[in-house]
Every structure is written in C-alpha cells, then in structure tokens.
C-alpha cells in the first residue's frame, strides 16, 4: 500500500484500516453499537458506581460490614466456592464420559447439560425447592436423619451446583476432544497408569479451560438469584444471599445501601477472577 501524502505535503504513515474501509457502513454500524452500549450498559453502570458514596466512603464500608450484609456476602461467597469446586470434579467427569465413550443416550445427555442455561431460574427455583423441602422427594429422605436441605445453606449450595454444571462441562469438553491421542498413548507405552496419565498429561492440558469454567461458575453463583431464593428460605444471618439483600435494601428505599452491596459483590467476583488469572499464569510459568 503506498504511503499517502497529507495536505501539508508531508508523508504520513499509511493507516491499515484505510484498506478495510472499502466495505460501507462503518459510521452507522459503530454509531448504533455505541448508542446501545452507552444507554444500556455504560450509563446504568455509572449510576451504580456513583451511588454508594453519598454517605461518604465510611458509609460504603459501614454497609458492607454491617452484620447482616457481611453474613450474606460470606454465605454467597462460600456456597458459590463450594458449588464451583464440586462442579469442577463432576463437570470434568461428565465431559470425559461424553468425549471418550460411546453409549446409548449420549446425545440426549449432551443436550440436557444445557438445561440449567435454558430453564428460567424461577422454574428451577420452585422445582428444586419442591424436591428438597422437608416433605419433598429427596428432602423427606434426609429429613429422617435430621438434615435440613431446603431453607438452609445446603439448599443454596444445591441450587448453585445445578446452575454451575454447564459452565465446567462446556469449557472442558471442546479441549478434551481436541487432545492429541499420541501424547496419551506415549504416556501409556512408558508405563503410566491411567491415573498418572490423567494427572500428568490430560489435567495440565485442560487446566486453563478448567480454571475459566470455574471462574464463570463461581461468578454466576455469586450473582444467582432466581434459582436460589425459593430453596434458601432467606433466613437473615443463616441462608440469606447477597443479591437478596439488594432487593431488601431497595424495598427500604436505601439506594446507596443497595448499590454498596452490588459493588461488594462485584469486588468479590473480580477478586476471584484476579486470583484465578494469577493461578493460570503460575501454571503457565511452570510449563504445565
């Protein structure tokens, strides 16, 4: 591409995008995009970011460390973490089964993995709560042993296990199916046990996908509302999740409080993302 000469007569660097501007519609498509993104995402999020400070920074801190809010953030954090960990194991196992074995009903199982994505959260919420309530199909069984699932943190955990499963399976599945057969076979020929092959050959390969699936599942769990509130029972300090406290604060017209809880949730999500990124870099450095 020849360099152009500007009006002043100096040579200016050719801009690469000049070439692609052959296709029309740049300003209109970018205009529509920026309009939507500004009106629907950026400005509303600015409203969120600017709200908590009306009682000063201490007002924000006071809200987050208010006993009830702090308890809710802690419950949300722990249940999401635990559910994402369980899904880490089960998700890899199911992805493995779907990629490596042929069995009747495989396509059906594969399609149904996405059910938690497709099913509206309110529907999953009432269905889970009906199953795990003390008189429900599963709940009555555990009730015999004095274990309460619905209306306790265990219920929140179960709902988040349901909602998080597809994130891990769908992250790991494509990577697993793209693995080269030779590497595994080499490990086997060299006398590695299946478990050794998995730990030293397969696990490192799927690790990045695993970590990103984990962080997606965790973030979803932190913010999940519909599938949780029915089964949780929403007892303050015991089974009240952070998103519900936003609703509670809004009902009290405490906008700054609601925005503070929202920002608290975002901070926790970003912190987890940050930690997982560091973990990923650590593994990458170790050459795994």
């Amino acid at each position: 591409m020849p360099a152009e000469i500007s009006k002043e007569g100096n040579f200016i660097k050719p801009k690469t995008f000049r070439r692609t501007r052959i296709i029309p519609g740049f300003s209109i498509s970018l205009g529509i995009t920026i309009f939507f993104v500004s009106v629907i995402v950026i400005i509303p999020l600015l409203a969120l970011l600017m709200r908590p400070w009306e009682n000063g920074f201490s007002g924000f801190i006071d809200t987050l460390f208010d006993k009830r809010v702090f308890a809710a953030l802690k419950i949300s954090f722990l249940c999401s973490l635990l559910a994402a960990l369980v899904n880490l194991f089960v998700g890899v196992l199911i992805a493995w089964v779907l990629v490596r074995y042929d069995f009747p009903g495989k396509r059906l199982v594969d399609a149904f993995i996405d059910m938690p994505f497709a099913l509206p959260t309110a529907v999953s919420g009432i269905a889970l709560s009906a199953i795990y309530a003390p008189n429900g199909w599963v709940g009555s069984f555990f009730n015999n042993f004095g274990i309460k699932i619905a209306y306790s943190p265990i219920g929140i955990f179960i709902a988040l296990v349901f909602i998080g499963l597809p994130f891990i399976v769908r992250s790991v599945q494509p990577v697993l199916s793209e693995l080269e057969a030779e590497v595994e076979e080499a490990a086997e020929t060299l006398g590695a046990s299946p478990l050794q092959t998995f730990n030293h050959v397969i696990l490192p390969a799927i690790m990045p996908a695993l970590l990103s699936g984990f962080s997606l599942a965790f973030a979803r769990g932190m913010g999940e509302y519909g599938s949780v509130i029915f089964i949780a029972g929403n007892i303050p300090y015991v089974s009240e999740i952070a998103p519900l406290l936003i609703v509670v604060k809004l009902e009290e017209y405490d906008y700054a409080g609601a925005a503070s809880v929202g920002i608290g949730m975002l901070i926790i999500s970003f912190a987890i993302l940050f930690v997982l990124n560091l973990t990923q870099q650590y593994f990458a450095k170790k050459g795994l």
Binding site: I42, P44, L45, L48, L244, V247, L250, A258
Partner: peptide, 20 residues
Amino acid sequence: IIDLPFSLSPVISGLVWVLM
C-alpha cells in the same frame, strides 16, 4: 463491554435501572 452483562448478577442488572 458487550460481554459485561454476562457476568453481572441479574439483580444488579435490575438495580441499575432503579438507580437511574
């Protein structure tokens, strides 16, 4: 920014409109 709504809690996606 286009991806951002995926990682927002649904409750926050409602809250921002009340704040506006």
